[in-house]
C-alpha cells in the first residue's frame, strides 16, 4: 500500500480531494503541494473526502489550518467529509469542528457549498 496518495475530481467549480493512506509529518507536504497547486489554478472550493484515510496527526491538521483562511477569503472553503470515528476524534480533540464544516458524506459537503452560493 502507498503511504499516502491524493486523487482528485472536479465537479463544476468544486474540487474533491480523496485522501488515501496516512497523513503524518512525513506525508503532509504532499497535501501542502496539492493545496498550492489549487491556489495557482484559482480553485478555492475544496471538499476533502477522508474515506480512504487511516490516520492523521497534527502535521495533517496543520495543512488545513494553513489554507482555510485563504480559501475563505476567495469565497471558497475547505469542507471535510466521510471521516471515520478515529479521524474525527483527532479533529474533535482540539475543537476543529468550531472552524471547519465536517460533513457526513461528500454529497452533504456539495450541498453545503450550494447552500452558501
Amino acid at each position: 500500500m502507498d503511504e499516502f496518495t491524493i486523487t482528485e475530481k472536479k465537479a463544476d467549480d468544486l474540487i474533491i480531494l480523496y485522501l488515501n493512506g496516512f497523513l503524518d509529518a512525513h506525508t503532509s507536504s504532499l497535501l501542502e503541494k496539492k493545496f498550492e497547486e489549487l491556489l495557482s489554478k484559482k480553485l478555492y472550493k475544496v471538499i476533502v473526502n477522508f474515506s480512504g484515510l487511516s490516520y492523521i496527526s497534527s502535521a495533517g491538521l496543520g495543512v488545513f489550518m494553513a489554507y482555510i483562511e485563504t480559501m475563505r477569503s476567495h469565497d471558497g472553503d475547505i469542507k471535510l467529509s466521510d471521516m471515520s470515528d478515529k479521524i474525527f476524534n483527532i479533529f474533535d480533540m482540539l475543537g476543529f469542528p468550531i472552524l471547519f464544516n465536517i460533513l457526513k458524506d461528500e454529497n452533504e459537503a456539495v450541498n453545503k457549498f450550494n447552500e452558501t452560493v
Binding site: S57, S58, A59, L61, G62, M65, A66, I68, E69, I90, M93, L94, G95, I98, L99
Partner: peptide, 22 residues
C-alpha cells in the same frame, strides 16, 4: 487557547496539545 487559535487562523503548535490531551 483554541478559540483564539481558530479566530486568528494560527498554524502549528498542535502536536504537544494533542500529546497531552491523549
Amino acid at each position: 487557547d483554541m478559540k483564539e487559535y481558530f479566530t486568528k487562523f494560527k498554524v502549528g503548535g498542535l502536536g504537544i496539545p494533542l500529546m497531552k490531551k491523549s
